[in-house]
């Protein structure tokens, strides 16, 4: 379990840094793979673009998605992941500063497993990340991986 990666889709390096620090402080030692935008995230997930030929059996244990991303919108990523047979069971959590109701509803309806608002307070933020990681990586079993 510990060799599985956490896919963090986030274009803000400050947020990336804070999130990584929160994982570390919560003793979650999985490698955090950071994608700068939606296109990169999808390429990684489906072995396209610069990630052509990547071993697709090695899927992330958790995807954390920022909603506001360059190029492909954050909501588009979970939609595409859910639409594909290989990745549809991956846990995806929308991690955003938006509190817009429309975003929340859209996120859930597109297959996000969870929707977490990033608090400004760094202690609260660290606590939210810790709980998310624990919930999805420890309480949830591994998703069945295709092939094998």
């Amino acid at each position: 379990m510990g060799d599985k990666v956490i896919l963090l889709v986030e274009d803000n390096p400050v947020d990336v840094s804070i999130t990584q620090r929160a994982f570390k402080k919560a003793n979650i030692l999985n490698r955090v793979v950071v994608m700068q935008d939606g296109v990169e995230a999808l390429d990684y997930s489906f072995g396209g673009g610069v990630y052509a030929g990547r071993e697709l059996d090695d899927q992330p244990i958790l995807i954390l998605l920022d909603l506001k991303l360059p190029r492909v919108d954050g909501l588009e990523v979970p939609r595409r992941i859910r639409a594909d047979e290989r990745t549809k069971l991956l846990p995806a959590v929308i991690l955003t500063s938006s509190r817009e109701e429309a975003d929340v509803v859209a996120g859930y309806s597109l297959g996000a497993n969870s929707y977490v608002r990033k608090p400004v307070n760094s202690e609260e933020f660290a606590e939210a990340v810790r709980q998310l990681g624990l919930y999805w990586m420890i309480l949830n079993e591994d998703p069945p991986v295709r092939g094998g």
Binding site: I18, S97, P119, S122
Partner: peptide, 22 residues
């Protein structure tokens, strides 16, 4: 605009608070 404010004004604050905490 509201969406933008919600995201873009809050993100730096998270950085300020987060690194202050760090």
């Amino acid at each position: 605009f509201s969406y933008s404010v919600s995201h873009d004004l809050r993100a730096p604050l998270r950085g300020i608070d987060g690194f202050s905490q760090a």
